[in-house]
Simulated assay, not measured.
Amino acid sequence: MSMIETKKAPRRKLSAPDVSLVIPTYNEKANIAPLVEAVRSALGDIPWEIIIVDDDSPDQTFAEVSRLAREEPRLRCLRRVGRRGLSSAVIEGALVANGSAIAVMDADFQHDERILKQMYEKLTSTGADIVVATRYAEGGGIGEWDATRAKMSDFATRMAGMLVGNQTSDPMSGFFMVRREIFASVIYDLSQQGYKILLDIISSSHTPLKIEEVPYVFRARQEGESKISVMVLAQFLFLIIEKLTHGLIPPRFALFSIVGGFGLLVHLAILNGLKLAGFTFIAAQLTATFIAMVSNFVMNNEFTYRDRRLTGLSFLAGLILFCVVCSFGALANVGVAEIAIHQFGNWSLAGLAGAIMGAVFNFSAATSLVWRRPRKRVVSVAA
Rank of each mutant, 00 (worst) to 15 (best):
Met172Cys: 11
Pro171Val: 13
Gln192Glu: 12
Phe183Pro: 00
Arg180Cys: 03
Gln193Arg: 15
Ile201His: 02
Gly194His: 14
Ser185Ile: 11
Leu198Gln: 01
Gly174Arg: 11
Phe175Trp: 04
Asp170Thr: 13
Ile201Tyr: 01
Gly174Ile: 14
Ser169Phe: 15
Ile187Trp: 11
Lys196Asp: 05
Leu190Glu: 06
Leu198Arg: 03
Tyr195Gly: 00
Arg180Tyr: 07
Phe176Tyr: 14
Met172Gly: 10
Val178Cys: 02
Ser191Val: 08
Gln192Val: 12
Gly174Glu: 13
Arg180Asn: 07
Arg179Ala: 06
Pro171Leu: 09
Ser169Ile: 15
Phe175Val: 03
Phe175His: 07
Lys196Cys: 00
Ile187Ser: 07
Ile201Pro: 00
Gln193Met: 11
Gln192Pro: 06
Asp189Tyr: 09
Ile201Lys: 01
Ser169Gln: 15
Ser169Cys: 15
Ser191Met: 12
Asp200Phe: 03
Phe176Cys: 08
Gln192Trp: 11
Arg179Gly: 02
Gly174Val: 13
Ile201Leu: 04
Gln193Trp: 13
Val186Glu: 05
Met177Ile: 14
Ile182Pro: 03
Gln193Asn: 10
Ile202Leu: 09
Ile202Phe: 10
Ser169Ala: 15
Phe183Ser: 01
Asp189Pro: 04
Val178Gly: 01
Ala184Leu: 10
Lys196Val: 04
Ile182Val: 09
Ile182Glu: 04
Arg180Ser: 09
Tyr188Phe: 11
Glu181His: 10
Phe175Met: 05
Tyr188Pro: 04
Ser185Pro: 08
Thr168Gln: 09
Ser191Gly: 07
Tyr195Val: 07
Ile187Asp: 11
Ile197Leu: 11
Leu198Pro: 04
